[in-house]
Simulated assay, not measured.
Amino acid sequence: MTDLDKIIRPSLKQLEPYNSGLSVAAVRRLCGLAEVNRLASNENPFGPAPEVLKYIRNQQNDLHIYPSSEASDLRTELASYLDADADRLVFGNGSEELLSIIFRSVIEPGDRVITLYPSFPLHEDYAVLMGAGIERVALTEDLTIDVDKLAEAASKPAKLLIFSHPVNPAGCWMSRDELLAVLDARHPDTLLVLDEAYFEFALSGDYCGGLDLLAPGKGHWIVLRTFSKAWGLAGLRIGYGVCSSPALAAALDLTRTPFNTNAPAQNAALLALGNEAHMKTSAAAIAAERDKVKASLMERGLRVAPTQANFIFFETEMPSAEAADALMRLGTLVKPWKQAGFDRFIRVTVGQPEENRQFLEHLDSIRART
């Protein structure tokens, strides 16, 4: 045992560093490329509304002043936008920070956490960090949600039921009736966290968001959303949660740091809300491109998950890390999935048409070598 082992939590040894990937600048230097398609992190390639960009370019005053700890202006506008009580909202430095806040506020060693698999890694990592036991509900062979198994698992006592919807990394989803079946089966003492980071991309008629079904008084729950994806503010990092009660929101606020969202992020999100049309236009364009790319991958005989997000999850003929490295050296960044049983899968973000065309060309090139 080293001296550091006496200090660091033992659970940290069970974690792998989060795979955030290389920056475009780093790939350009490493591979000697002038242009790189960044299709690894599920950003909106169209960016935020022009009004947001104008604000960011001119932002120089008041940077020496702390932001509103309560995100007051954004809170008021967002509550109106969602038709939710302002005191049921919580804000974070991206919804990823809110995940950390939730786990630190709720989980104790030995607690049971239920999640889908494959999963967004932080849903499991934070559980491990806090000493919880994880129960995975695997996707079906056709990479859809096994609603019956999820409902069965949710019916038993657990501290936390957490999953993304649409699912990250697969992109699959539940219909209104399917989601309702899981919500109705949930044990009354279980906190539900529905991570809807990709909510705005789910344009199909049978997708149903949690806020359409959940209401105060229907148990304890949190619906997480973010401005990082469809709203185009990934670089500013601001996410939010809608809680089942003001008391739950207040409890989470005790765990977060007082000034966890910065002023430019709050103001940019406020401006983005006022320009919803831009978000909807870009989300629709991305959905159309998503369907084209998915069809192209299926035409190539690849196994592809159904998706309502701004990404596509598909199986390659080689280990995903090898495929991702080969694609990177041609100029396309993708996300190799590394969870056991899925280490031949890649998650690719839907980009603009030219980026998607180049991705498919690069994919054909590396497949031709095998």
Rank of each mutant, 00 (worst) to 15 (best):
Q59S: 14
L363F: 14
K149M: 08
P67F: 04
P166Y: 12
S164W: 05
A132W: 07
L22K: 13
D343C: 08
K229A: 11
E77T: 02
G110L: 03
L327S: 01
C208G: 08
P306Y: 10
L160W: 07
G331W: 11
I346G: 01
S175E: 06
L63R: 13
L4N: 01
L327A: 03
L360A: 09
V350L: 04
A234I: 05
V128H: 09
T307S: 15
V293G: 03
H278Q: 06
D195W: 12
D5L: 04
P121Q: 14
D195N: 15
P10A: 11
H362G: 02
F199R: 09
S69W: 01
A285N: 09
G301P: 00
F313M: 03
L74V: 03
G21R: 01
L333D: 04
I238Q: 06
A181N: 02
E77F: 04
E178A: 13
N44A: 07
G131D: 08
D111L: 12
A234V: 01
R176F: 02
D148K: 12
H165A: 11
Y66R: 11
V128K: 15
T332V: 12
A215P: 00
A263N: 15
F313C: 06
M318L: 14
S100F: 14
N93S: 12
V193L: 07
Y126G: 00
R57Y: 11
E51C: 01
R357G: 13
F103D: 05
P17V: 06
S105K: 04
S72R: 13
T281C: 04
P157F: 08
G232Q: 03
P67W: 01
K338R: 14
V106N: 02
S244K: 07
G209A: 15
L98S: 07
T257N: 12
A277P: 00
A40L: 05
P353L: 10
C172Y: 11
M174K: 09
V128R: 15
A263E: 15
S204M: 02
I114H: 00
S282G: 12
G331N: 10
N19W: 09
E135L: 10
R300L: 06
V334Q: 06
I312S: 03
T370M: 14
G239D: 02
E317F: 07
L273W: 10
T257I: 07
M328V: 03
P118F: 14
Y207V: 06
E124V: 12
V113W: 12
E200Y: 12
N267G: 00
K6T: 09
S100V: 01
R186G: 02
A84N: 00
S20C: 03
I65F: 09
S105A: 15
H362A: 11
I366L: 15
F359M: 13
G210K: 11
L22N: 04
T115W: 04
S155C: 07
L203V: 12
G94Y: 12
L271D: 01
D253T: 05
N262A: 12
A154V: 11
A269R: 08
A170V: 11
A71Y: 00
L330H: 10
V304P: 01
T190H: 09
Q352C: 08
L248W: 13
Y207P: 03
A277I: 05
F359K: 13
D343Q: 08
